[in-house]
């Protein structure tokens, strides 16, 4: 067993556990995009960044791929982590504004602007479809092709693959190409919607250190209406 601390809480986990799994075990919510329980971790989206500290030295790592090590001090919601996550979301939004999942993340994490050149891609190269095809559907019909900024996902020779059974697993798991954001504010320029702003946790003003583990976190807001007046 390995002992480490997450946000100051001591936890013991088995060898080979990732920081994300350890945090989940404690009920700490770390946002993810390219992570899926049934697939191998890939570390592509960088949304799950956490800070690990060793004395005064600190560094940012992706928690879905970083293995728990003895005596590690992990912080999941420090100021620099939150800032880094916002930046990651902003970059994803600059690539792929049509994704409902990314728009929701933006609303939830308070991303209100995109300062980068706006692109309109259908893919963020998170590799979920490639992994589901290989690991769950045992097909290996699609994969990454090319490199650098030309790297993209396709079938061999860009034609229908012989091993593809049209199972639709790739579309099912895609955070970008299927579930589109048709929010009222997605226009050609300034492609940030933020119409789902009510996703913003109402308690943040009071507990800025994310003391609430609910996700989505609007529950208490609704509860306030539901409590009968007599009991308030």
């Amino acid at each position: 067993m390995i002992k480490l601390s997450i946000n100051g809480i001591e936890v013991e986990v088995e060898q080979g556990t990732t920081l994300l799994e350890a945090a989940k075990f404690l009920g700490i919510n770390i946002p993810t995009l390219c992570y899926n329980d049934g697939l191998s971790p890939y570390g592509a989206c960088r949304l799950c960044v956490v800070e690990i500290r060793d004395g005064t030295a600190s560094k940012m790592v992706s928690s879905c791929t970083y293995p728990a090590t003895e005596g590690l001090k992990v912080f999941t919601h420090t100021e620099s982590v939150l800032k880094a996550r916002k930046m990651v979301i902003e970059l994803h939004l600059a690539t792929c504004p049509g994704s409902k999942i990314i728009q929701d993340l933006a609303s939830k994490h308070g991303v209100r602007q995109v300062r980068f050149k706006q692109e309109y891609e259908d893919c963020i190269n998170c590799g979920l479809c490639v992994r589901i095809c290989e690991e769950q559907m045992m097909a290996k019909a699609i994969g990454f092709v090319g490199r650098g900024d030309k790297r993209h996902i396709t079938t061999p020779f860009d034609i229908k693959s012989d091993v593809c059974r049209l199972c639709g697993g790739c579309m099912y798991i895609c955070p970008a190409c299927q579930l589109r954001c048709h929010g009222p504010n997605v226009q050609e320029e300034g492609a940030i919607c933020n119409a789902c702003l009510n996703l913003e946790p109402p308690c943040v003003d009071y507990f800025d250190d994310q003391m609430c583990y609910m996700d989505p976190c609007v529950v208490c807001e609704q509860a306030a209406d539901r409590i009968p007046k007599s009991e308030r």
């Binding site: 290996k140 019909a141 699609i142 994969g143 990454f144 092709v145 090319g146 490199r147 079938t155 061999p156 020779f157 693959s161 012989d162 091993v163």
Partner: peptide, 22 residues
Amino acid sequence: ELQYISEKMDIPLIELFSIASF
């Protein structure tokens, strides 16, 4: 040729294609 060696060597065609394009 790629299709043939993919079958022969039992390596998914997409893997050969990825390598060849990389």
